[in-house]
Amino acid sequence: MTSITVADQTFVAASGAEVADVLSAPNNWLRWWPDLILEVREDRGDKGIRWTTKGALVGTMEVWLQPSLDGVILHYFLHAEPHPALPPNRIAAANRARRVAGRNMSFELKTRLEAGRPAGVAPANAS
Rank of each mutant, 00 (worst) to 15 (best):
residue 78 L to D: 04
residue 27 N to I: 06
residue 43 D to P: 01
residue 27 N to H: 13
residue 96 R to S: 14
residue 111 T to V: 02
residue 95 N to A: 09
residue 121 V to P: 04
residue 76 Y to K: 02
residue 108 E to G: 06
residue 42 E to H: 14
residue 68 S to R: 15
residue 96 R to H: 15
residue 95 N to R: 15
residue 120 G to Y: 02
residue 120 G to N: 09
residue 29 W to M: 09
residue 14 A to D: 04
residue 104 N to R: 08
residue 37 I to G: 03
residue 90 R to H: 14
residue 100 V to Y: 01
residue 25 A to L: 14
residue 90 R to F: 05
residue 118 P to M: 13
residue 57 L to C: 03
residue 14 A to G: 10
residue 11 F to S: 08
residue 24 S to L: 01
residue 35 D to L: 05
residue 101 A to C: 05
residue 20 A to W: 14
residue 71 G to L: 11
residue 16 G to V: 04
residue 85 A to K: 06
residue 121 V to S: 13
residue 102 G to P: 01
residue 91 I to Y: 03
residue 79 H to C: 03
residue 21 D to S: 10
residue 72 V to L: 06
residue 74 L to D: 09
residue 5 T to L: 06
residue 69 L to D: 11
residue 64 W to T: 15
residue 79 H to F: 13
residue 67 P to N: 10
residue 41 R to W: 00
residue 18 E to F: 01
residue 117 R to W: 07
residue 53 T to I: 08
residue 20 A to N: 03
residue 23 L to Q: 06
residue 46 D to E: 15
residue 118 P to K: 12
residue 113 L to A: 12
residue 123 P to E: 07
residue 25 A to I: 07
residue 49 I to M: 15
residue 16 G to F: 02
residue 70 D to E: 11
residue 39 E to D: 11
residue 37 I to F: 01
residue 82 P to Q: 12
residue 97 A to W: 04
residue 120 G to Q: 06
residue 113 L to S: 11
residue 103 R to K: 12
residue 33 W to G: 00
residue 22 V to R: 15
residue 16 G to L: 04
residue 113 L to V: 13
residue 99 R to L: 11
residue 86 L to C: 09
residue 33 W to D: 02
residue 17 A to T: 12
residue 124 A to L: 08
residue 55 G to S: 05
residue 33 W to P: 01
residue 30 L to K: 15
residue 63 V to Y: 10
residue 47 K to Y: 07
residue 118 P to H: 10
residue 6 V to L: 11
residue 70 D to F: 07
residue 86 L to H: 08
residue 20 A to D: 10
residue 15 S to V: 01
residue 12 V to M: 11
residue 68 S to E: 15
residue 6 V to W: 06
residue 101 A to V: 02
residue 89 N to W: 10
residue 111 T to P: 00
residue 18 E to W: 00
residue 36 L to H: 06
residue 47 K to D: 12
residue 79 H to Y: 07
residue 37 I to T: 14
residue 67 P to D: 09
residue 59 G to C: 13
residue 60 T to S: 11
residue 99 R to N: 12
residue 78 L to E: 08
residue 117 R to N: 08
residue 88 P to Y: 03
residue 44 R to T: 09
residue 69 L to T: 02
residue 97 A to G: 07
residue 122 A to D: 07
residue 108 E to F: 11
residue 112 R to S: 11
residue 88 P to K: 14
